[in-house]
Each structure stands twice: as C-alpha cells, then as structure tokens.
Amino acid sequence: MSPAAAFRRFALVAALAFIGQPAAAQVPFGQATAVKEGLEIGTSTSEIGIASDFRGADLTIFGALTNADELLLAIGQYDVVVTLEGPLDYATVRKKSRVLGIWVNTESMTFEQVPASYSVAATRQIDDILSSEGGLPIGTDHMRLSPTGYVGNAGNLTEFRDAYRRLKLAGGLYQHDFGGVRFVSSSLFRASLRLPANVPDGVHMVRAYLFKSGTLLAERELPLRVNKTGIEQQITDAAHNQPILYGILCVMIALVTGWGASLMFRKK
C-alpha cells in the first residue's frame, strides 16, 4: 500500500472517530478540558522487507490528536515528536592517543542497551519542545547513554557520549529531522522518518509523543519489524547460523576456483 493510500484510509478512520465525539471539540477556549488530549498513530506497514538493492527509505507515520483544543492547535501550542528506535545492543566507544609515536586505542567506554539505529522527527527543534520537561530521554541529545562498569571522571563521560552521538550521526544510523512532523489538517499529522541503508534488522519501535506547551501529554508506540531479505541476508544468516558449513563452502569455492583456472588455462 502506498503511503498516500494509507494516509487516505487513516484520515477517513480518524475523521469518523471525531464525528463520534463532538463534545470535546466544542469546549470553549479557556475552560479546563475535562477530557485529556490523546494521540493515535498508524504506520503504512508493520513490517518492512529490505531487499538486496536497498539504499535507505522513508517510513511515513500518520497520527491524529484527539480532544485537542482548536485554538491551542491554531497557535501551534501542540508539538509532536516521533522516533524510530532500532534494536538495543551494547556499544563501545574507543579513543586513540599517541603512544611512542603511534596512534593506539587507549581509552574505551561501553554503553549498555543503546539503540543500534535511531531516527527522530519533530514539529520543531527538539530542545525548544522539551524546554520545560527535564530528563526526558527523547532525541539524540537526550537519549540514555549509561556506561557499564566504573567511570573515573564525569568529564570523560560527557566526552565519550558526545563522541558516540557524533559518530552515529555521521554514520547515518542516527538521524534527526526537526520539521519532519507536519500537521496536514488541524489535528492530523504526518511524520516521515528516514531508514538508513545500513538499518539493522530486528524489531524497531515507533514512538510518538504529544506535548502541549512543553509538557508531555501522551505517548504511543508501535512495533515495526525490519526483515532483510535477499541473497545478502541469507549469506549473513548462513555465516552466523551454520558457520562450519559456511567455512567449508568458502574453502570449496577456493579449491574449485584455483583448480579450475589451472585446468582452463592448460587446455589453451
């Protein structure tokens, strides 16, 4: 299903949902809203198959605010942040320094359970949105990076965290797009997140956060399975699941190639 078709269907469902609850939309400005604002999201697909020629793709996420205050919406007091978090794993950052004239990895720090990939889109700069909300681990600058083991001094920690973010952003596995979430009507929004070419396979998590004037109101999440298909993935799987057979195959190819070439060129 194309993103546009998915969006039309989603818009229809969302529109029907609003018809069912007219009371909320009619709350006059200034009065306390009895019903809390909510957030619904949907993706065009819950599973992405990545073929051999994959060079990265955009994932479109649709969402709707429920019980939103029309006036606050109109003056842009609502903000939406959407993230796509890859599978969690440990990551080690190493730092080189000169030892006897040679550059050697001398220091290292391992972070526990950090996402292998991370894309974030928002209605505007994430620091502006989060200004009043301290300690939320949203966005590349604020995500949790807890080191394993003993960390000597705090300066080191900041240094290694910064290096980690910088390297991941430079490598394309971490991305942010401030302005990547757009309201397409007063309460419907559309977010596009970039899947990098080297996106890891596994279960990713789409998370959407709704903020009103800097306060987190609602949060939704949806799993997204990324499956690599194609010959490359089969090779990677074979290398990890049947390493002995894989090794034997590598050796066989070498023997056949070497022997075959000597036969071919002798006949000439």
């Binding site: 080690t92 730092k95 080189k96 394993t148």
Partner: peptide, 14 residues
C-alpha cells in the same frame, strides 16, 4: 603515525 581524522571509533557490542 599520521594523526587520524577522528580519534574516536565506535563498535557494536561490549
């Protein structure tokens, strides 16, 4: 011997 472009490197896993 030459100063690397980036002193830091990152690898997956512990």
């Amino acid at each position: 011997v030459v100063t690397p472009a980036d002193l830091y490197s990152v690898s997956v896993g512990s």
